[in-house]
């Protein structure tokens, strides 16, 4: 009993530490400018400046940026969900020469930092004429993602071979096995892939920064940067906009929490 109380206390303390940045964000979003840097910090602002939210939306055209972000995010989520399991299936469930070597190669691309490949990849997209379009942000997701391929491959390996064999005996084609047997079993891990991709695409800053050259095509993460200029930062507005930008991810997480955690435990990947 006492042990349980102690465990709960420790968990609560850690929980509070992790929720602190979120609380600070929401609290700053509601503060009048005078209270932002006040010491000791004001946790519950008075008066509460609800007007910061509509002001943030007009300071920078955030609604337009949100629409653009939704388009990019939704399409790239569809992309990874279509492509990554297909590649992972090939690597996990079909025997062919040197497939492990290829898998190693795919996984090793995860070690290369984005900054290193940024300029060559930019040049590639430039020669395709894709600069200032959403294509460089969307199309790559239709060609698989090393991390998701790795994640799904590990999961597919755990599914008993007998299931495939049984289907094969009944005359099922390879693609039929993939789409009718394996994919339905992999729903939780597919949800993880979709969610991860959603969060990455939603928060992506560098990609939209270098590829987009038209303000009407900007995304939320670029919009958030516009609250900071060389001269000053509109802290309250920035935090109000950040709160609004984080909201969809939090909501999504609450609804998909169970699938998400199930998917992570199934694939044996934590964090």
């Amino acid at each position: 009993m006492i042990g349980q109380i102690v465990t709960h206390c420790i968990l609560i303390i850690f929980g509070l530490i992790f929720i602190l940045p979120l609380v600070t964000m929401v609290s700053t979003a509601l503060k009048p400018d005078v209270q932002i840097f006040a010491w000791p910090p004001v946790w519950i602002p008075n008066p509460r400046m609800w007007s910061n939210f509509p002001r943030a939306l007009t300071f920078v055209p955030m609604i337009l940026y949100a629409k653009n972000t939704v388009v990019i995010t939704a399409t790239s989520v569809i992309g990874v969900v279509l492509s990554s399991p297909l590649v992972a299936y090939g690597l996990a469930r079909i025997d062919w020469p040197e497939r492990n070597l290829l898998f190693l190669l795919i996984v090793s691309t995860m070690m290369v930092p984005y900054q290193v490949t940024m300029i060559p990849v930019y040049l590639l997209f430039n020669s395709l004429g894709w600069i200032n379009t959403y294509l460089p942000l969307i199309v790559p997701s239709f060609f698989g993602n090393a991390f998701f391929i790795f994640l799904l491959r590990q999961f597919f390996m755990t599914i008993p071979r007998e299931l495939s064999d049984a289907a094969r005996i009944d005359g099922c084609s390879e693609f039929g096995i993939y789409s009718r047997i394996i994919l339905p079993l992999a729903k939780p891990s597919l949800a993880v892939v979709a969610l991860f991709q959603f969060i990455w695409a939603w928060n992506d800053f560098l990609g939209p920064l270098i590829y987009l050259k038209d303000q009407t095509k900007y995304t939320i993460s670029l919009g958030l940067q516009q609250f900071q200029s060389g001269y000053q930062t509109e802290w309250a507005l920035l935090m109000a906009a950040a709160t609004m930008a984080t909201f969809p991810i939090i909501i999504l997480f609450f609804f998909t929490q169970r699938t998400f955690i199930q998917g992570i435990t199934l694939t044996g990947i934590k964090g």
Binding site: Y122, Q225, S229, G230
Partner: peptide, 20 residues
Amino acid sequence: LVVPYDERDTKLMAAIAAGD
């Protein structure tokens, strides 16, 4: 075009490398 002030170099260097 408003370019985030702190990150303008990243964008500029990529664009210069691509000749654009």
